[in-house]
Write a protein that binds this DNA or RNA. Structure first.
Length: 862
RNA sequence: GCCCGAGUGGCGGAAUGGUAGACGCAGGGGAUUCAAAAUCCUCCGCCGUAAAAGGCGUGCGAGUUCGACUCUCGCCUCGGGCACCA
């Protein structure tokens, strides 16, 4: 048939030797082309995908865990008869490559491709069932060239535009910094105070899809509820009132200030108006008023993240401007510029109702503003507040300063009544707003996909022609000075305008790496096509049936991908069925590890790898390290563990089994080096058990056969259900039990034991495929276990004649009874009442109540 | 600060609202062995007892229920995300 005969004859070793066994089977799989994804219209397809890795340089346990889980699914589905697509690629653009080039010289491309080669070399020994022929890196010009074509189509479809947005600006290095490069408000390299600076930036119009992306979450039934919730909150649909205050003593052009509020029912509790430091009014005042200028400048030092903004002490500056309350011309409110108001949300201006918003309360307290209550708890009386009173909107409260709806009503009802009231009075309009902002994709960096447009003095911003794609990154660049080398490249920047042909300049910013990862799953269906996708291939392979990755991607990556799938449908690159590209999502927990830190001369943190540390001290210098509790393994914190050592010492199957056992896949797992040895011992035991069974002399069927077969069918049932529900730790627990049973099944015939061992091999194959092949071949299984169909449990073998039921007295377990499996409620109750424990507890009296849950439990209430 | 999770023996963890601790690791005791490795048997939440009986136990505090690790409310601790880390 094939190579199997040779393998059988070589298979006379006396010990489990993964180093010899694993490459042998990997070669056999390759020779058979087991993992090539075949477009086979006759068979149902299954597309399983793990989030592709960033080529940081070495694989870590998180990767091993992630890819092993995907591999279990891929191998299992293949055994179930599906045509499986299980590809792998590299999320290869990004800052670390550029940082490496700055620190160590060399080129980001060289660094990246070297890392890919190393990591691929580390992954290969794991024996993953990956269709390597489809591999690509996002920094391959073949990939990002297609991404540029996609970008042009999206631009033409009105999904891309430019506007101003703030960035972190390092005034010393004269460069834009990523949030993680800003440490305590200072540039990580220069140490200079970072400024917020406005630049014209490219944006994707994801907000066009706010409502759809939100509503479609309801249909994603095979996504974790927590992810859908996080996305719901992130998109953040709110119903509110938009209206304008008329101003007193405001500069020309600011006769009105538009505000948006989700609580118009609290309008009579207003005590101030606050605008963002980036609000046009603040900008206007800043020009002429040094106090405002100083305050606004102070605000701009906070940084660009929402987190920084929220954690900063809430401060404001009274502008001296007043607004009139829309219900009472004589009632004037002060206008503040406040550091916690976001220009990106609503209108960049709010009215503060301190009684019912904690931030407003803190603000009012600080600036001695009134705190009038609008409503009180139902049945309570108004009294001075020590903190904001913020009940859920669904709770009924009593309005003491209401103006629309009933005196007692829920917040929700009051909001609607207030909107209706204001609309009839012409005070404003009810509007629906979203928290989701458009996706800024410009990055002032080199190592990313160039944005394929040209700046022409005559024609303005002009899209590049598709026939001129790809716009490849120039290779002759240096990183010896800060800033983007594309900006100062002598020839790359100069080009002809695609419209008028006059000399023009190429756009020098590149795309956010989230763009790269927002459509790679579609590209895997036709990785070499000369268009972004191939219609027939996308039709067959899409959608991803099972997507697996870290919970840290719950919002951004997954939301952007959902948006991109819609944009790709709109531009004709994906079928309509693919606007939700991931049918099922599984978010695995992270592999965590302690972090070891020292500080350098300037007090900045320096991190150390676990292998550089022993007994809390650096091995090299003996310096004591600070141990930070376990956190997600990350290259920048250096709390990573190298799986290569484990694989070299114990083999891939040990590493695979180890990362799947014990911890449930969705939960974080703390890496400890103890345990790998124990896993190896277990696998060696299974190997030896198989060897022993294979050497048994043939005999006649025996008494123990039925028990063993029943155990085997229970194992099939248990493991199958566990894999179907992603409970790999439970599948492994079932395999342990079955192995123990088989090991003790000496009263069963050799034939039955061998049959059980073959089934054991099949059940183990998704997790430890090499060992499974070894056992399969020892037991004379036909062909490769990798290509054998999944075993089926016989339902008749799963039921037993009698069951044991626990007996509770008042909910506490006191004994048990054994009854026929088909016993009726009355019979069970009778048996329970004659149990010793029950007779003792009743002491001759009648039970108050007897609860019989068939097949489960009996509870006697006395 | 806001949004989302998680918390069970010495450790990883199991348990459709129905026997808390499956399965495994570590550990104790024993068998086998000249000895070791390997293997096998056995014990293993806490208090209590000669052994039983019994009591207490799923981060903390309330609640719903015949019955709560599981559901509700309020806390604590840890983790993820917060739009330029990927």
């Amino acid at each position: 048939m094939h190579a199997q005969g040779k393998i059988m004859t070589g298979d006379t070793q006396a010990r489990y030797q993964p180093q010899a066994v694993e490459p042998k089977w990997q070669n056999a799989w390759d020779a058979e082309g087991c993992f090539t994804a075949r477009h086979d219209p006759a068979r149902p397809k299954y597309y399983v995908l793990e989030m592709f890795p960033y080529p940081s340089g070495r694989i870590h346990m998180g990767h091993v865990r992630n890819y092993t889980m995907g591999d279990v699914v891929a191998r299992y589905k293949k055994a179930k008869g599906f045509s499986v697509l299980h590809p792998m690629g590299w999320d290869a653009f990004g800052m670390p490559a550029e940082n490496a080039a700055m620190q160590e010289g060399g080129h980001p491309a060289e660094w990246t491709y070297n890392n890919i080669a190393v990591m691929k070399g580390q992954m290969k020994p794991l024996g993953l069932s990956i269709a390597w022929s489809r591999e690509f890196a996002t920094c391959d010009v073949e990939y990002y060239g297609q991404q540029q074509a996609l970008f042009l189509d999206m631009l033409a479809a009105g999904l891309v535009y430019r506007k101003n947005a703030v960035v972190n600006w390092d005034p010393v290095d004269m460069t834009v910094l990523a949030n993680e490069q800003v440490i305590d408000g200072k540039g990580w390299r220069s140490g200079a105070e970072v400024e917020r600076r406005e630049l014209t930036q490219w944006f994707f119009k994801i907000s066009d899809y706010s409502a759809e992306l939100l509503d479609a979450l309801d249909g994603l039934n095979d996504w974790p509820e927590k992810v859908r919730l996080m996305q719901r909150n992130w998109i953040g649909r709110s119903r509110g009132l938009q209206f304008a205050f008329s101003t007193v003593d405001a500069p020309e052009g600011f006769e009105r200030i538009e505000v948006y509020t989700t609580r118009p029912d609290t309008l009579l509790g207003a005590s101030f108006v606050a605008v963002s430091p980036d609000h046009p009014l603040a900008r206007q005042l800043e020009r002429h008023d040094s106090a405002v200028a100083a305050f606004v400048a102070d605000c701009r030092r906070i940084g660009t993240t929402e987190e920084a903004l929220e954690k900063t002490e809430k401060k404001g500056l009274d502008t001296g401007i007043r607004v009139r309350h829309p219900f009472d011309n004589a009632w004037e409110l002060p206008v503040y510029i406040a550091n916690f108001i976001l220009m990106d949300y609503g209108t960049g201006a709010i009215f503060g109702c301190p009684a019912h918003d904690q931030r407003d309360f803190d603000f009012a307290t600080r600036y001695n503003l009134p705190i009038p209550a609008v409503f009180v708890a139902e049945g309570a009386e108004e009294q001075p507040l020590g903190e904001a009173f913020v009940p859920p909107k669904t709770e009924r409260v009593r309005y003491v300063r209401g103006f629309a709806g009933n005196e007692i009503q829920t917040g929700e009802d009051a909001v609607e009544a207030a909107v209706a009231f204001c609309e009839t009075r012409g005070v404003g309009q009810g509007v629906t707003k979203f928290r989701l902002r458009d996706w800024g994709l410009s990055r002032q960096r080199y190592w990313g996909c160039p944005i394929p447009v040209v700046h022409c003095d005559t024609c303005g911003v002009v899209p590049e022609k598709k026939e001129n794609l790809p716009i490849a990154l120039p290779m002759d660049v240096s990183f010896d000075q800060p800033g983007n080398p594309l900006d100062r490249h002598p020839t790359w920047r100069d080009c002809a305008c695609p419209k008028c042909g006059q000399p023009a300049r190429r756009e020098s910013v590149t795309m956010d790496t989230f763009v790269d990862s927002s459509w790679y799953f579609a590209r895997f269906t036709a990785p070499r096509a000369d268009t972004p996708t191939d219609a027939a291939e996308a039709e067959y392979w899409m959608n991803v049936d099972q997507y697996i990755g870290g919970i840290e991607h719950a919002i951004l990556h997954l939301l952007y991908s959902r948006f991109f799938a819609r944009a790709m449908h709109k531009t004709g690159h994906l079928p309509a069925k693919s606007i939700e590209p991931f049918n099922a999502l599984f978010t695995q927990g992270m592999v965590t590890h302690e972090i070891y830190m020292t500080r350098d001369g300037r007090g900045r943190p320096v991190y150390h790898l676990p292998e550089e540390v022993e007994d809390g001290k650096l091995i090299t210098t003996g310096e004591e390290v600070t141990i930070i509790p376990s956190a997600k393994m990350s290259k920048s914190k250096k709390n990573v563990v190298d799986p290569v050592n484990i694989i070299e010492r114990f083999g891939a199957d040990t590493a695979r089994w180890f990362v799947l056992s014990d911890s449930p896949p969705e939960r974080d797992v703390e890496w400890t080096s103890a345990g790998a040895e124990a896993t190896f011992k277990h696998l060696a035991r299974v190997w030896a058990l198989s060897r022993r069974i294979a050497d048994l002399p043939a005999d006649a069927p025996a008494d123990g056969d039925d028990d063993l077969m029943r155990a085997m069918h229970r194992a099939i049932d248990e493991v199958t259900r566990a894999i179907d529900s992603f409970a790999f730790n439970k599948a492994i627990a079932g395999l342990y039990s079955f192995t123990n049973t088989l090991n003790r099944a000496e009263s069963a015939s050799a034939g039955a034991q061998s049959r059980a061992a073959r089934t054991l091999a099949q059940l183990m194959a998704p997790m430890v495929p090499h060992l499974a092949e070894e056992i399969w071949s020892m037991q004379g299984g036909a062909g490769l276990v990798t290509q054998a169909p999944w075993p089926k449990a016989d339902p008749a073998m799963l039921v037993s004649d009698t069951i044991t039921l626990p007996i509770q007295i008042n909910g506490k377990r006191k004994g048990e009874i054994t009854v026929p499996a088909d016993a009726g409620k009355e019979a069970v109750e009778k048996a329970a009442l004659s149990a010793d424990a029950v007779i003792k507890a009743l002491g001759g009296t009648a039970p108050k109540k007897v609860i019989v849950v068939p097949g489960r439990i009996v509870n006697v209430v006395v």
